[in-house]
Amino acid sequence: MAERYGAPVGGDRPSRGQAVIHPSPSQWLDVAAAVRADGFDQLIDFTAVDYLTYGADRSLPEGVQPERFEVVASLMSHERRERLRMRVQVPADDPTLPTLFDLWPGSESLEREVYDMFGIAFEGHPDLSRILMPEDWPGYPLRKDYDSGRIPVQFKAASNVR
């Protein structure tokens, strides 16, 4: 099914029976446009994963070079009741991708969230700014090298507890 978009197709094992394609960053926009033209009319979900400390085999299809970041887009074709997932490898030294805003305007907030949480920039995005964190927040919280910010719990009134 997914071969027709000219991108490597994911194996069945890692995706649990769900259709996955793996375009390269340079193919990203072209493949997305082909997918859009093929009837996938809604961008359901858009997120990223930081594979910095991933220990297991990522089971990427042959020819796909693993990178630190992976952007994952889930698409829906209402007409055919089909889902398709696109996974693209984004290198750590140049975390940029073209925006999908022109194909699916609904990507606006989702791409802003990925920018906010992972620091992946989307070229051509109309308003690439932080969305969940304060505008002056340092760092990108969902990166694996960003500390969770857990602070040790102090039991302030511990001496009174019996």
Partner: peptide
């Protein structure tokens, strides 16, 4: 009262 189960960067503890 204490940050509860969300002991992380986002929540005031």
């Amino acid at each position: 009262s204490s940050g509860g189960m969300f002991n992380n960067y986002a929540i005031v503890q």
